[in-house]
């Protein structure tokens, strides 16, 4: 196992603008030995380091089977802004992978429902790409069924918009935007992602849910799922906190007694249902 408290060098292979404030950055670890020893599961994250600026926790948006490690980032603070200014051939530091990812194996034979909001689709694109790579396309089966619910602010804020046709190869896709842009043709739904649940016919006994998005969206989505008798044990949510060290020693990501960085970021909802509604935890 490589050292995870000191960053190692990675080279940026390419960057791509996704929406007005998000971009994807593909990197490759420079050192061959570290590269070979580096394994992640979808849902885990790396600490991306721009020397002189700082680190930011970013989940992987690529599949572990992809050659390069991709991160899809919102330009929000100093580090992510600095990252957005780097281009192919330039180097950054990375530490990772950290945390607990999605239980992919548990999802193999069950109906998988992915619920994503905004940039929350990034760690779930990792799951989608995993299934796209391990299952032959154009073979949607009735069971196990795979569904993708995605909500964005406006059509222009749909991250990975170009990839949705390919997601449709193996997922039933349901899209919704909070408000449609009058200048752009939009034939999808308008409103909150939670209203899409009415369009699904879920078999609660054989459904597993992976969810990532704003906390309020996840809370209302979980409520909808529980109403439809999906057990809390089969709902997985990815939490966001201020991860600083990634390895449970800095205390910034506390969610009650949980370290989001090492106990999460993916939690079985039953583990945290008691904490979820508490204000300012």
């Amino acid at each position: 196992m490589h050292d995870r408290s000191t960053p190692f060098e990675a080279t940026i292979k390419w960057t791509r603008k996704e929406t007005r404030d998000t971009f994807t950055c593909a990197i490759r670890i420079s050192n061959r030995d570290i590269q070979r020893g580096y394994r992640f599961v979808p849902g885990q994250f790396n600490m991306l380091y721009v020397p002189g600026i700082g680190e930011a926790p970013i989940s992987m948006s690529s599949s572990p089977l992809d050659r390069d490690i991709m991160h899809t980032v919102r330009i929000a603070g100093d580090v992510t802004t600095a990252l957005s200014l780097l281009g192919a051939g330039e180097v950054i530091g990375i530490r990772g992978p950290f945390g607990r990812g999605w239980p992919i194996e548990e999802a193999e034979d069950l109906d998988l429902l992915i619920v994503a909001g905004g940039l929350g689709i990034a760690p779930l694109r990792s799951v989608a790409r995993h299934f796209m790579k391990t299952h032959s396309p154009k073979k949607k089966t009735a069971h196990p069924r795979r569904m993708l619910l995605y909500g964005a602010k406006t059509p222009k804020d749909i991250v990975f918009r170009d990839e949705f046709p390919r997601f449709r190869d193996i997922f039933d896709v349901f899209l919704s935007v909070d408000r449609a842009d009058p200048e752009e043709y939009w034939r999808g739904e308008t409103g909150l992602v939670t209203q899409l649940f009415d369009r699904l016919s879920l078999d609660p006994v054989r459904t597993i849910v992976f969810m990532c998005g704003p906390e309020i969206m996840m809370q209302t989505s979980v409520r909808e799922l529980i109403l439809r008798e999906v057990p809390e044990e089969k709902i997985f949510v990815s939490m966001e906190r201020n991860m600083n060290c990634g390895m449970g020693i800095c205390g910034h990501c506390f969610f009650g007694p949980k370290f989001v960085c090492k106990d999460g970021p993916v939690f079985r909802f039953s583990e945290i249902s008691g904490l979820m509604g508490i204000k300012e935890l």
Partner: peptide, 16 residues
């Protein structure tokens, strides 16, 4: 102090 770094556009050295 955790480490020192030295970085150019295309290379980076980190010394614990």
């Amino acid at each position: 102090e955790m480490f020192t770094f030295r970085r150019s556009r295309t290379s980076m050295t980190i010394t614990p």
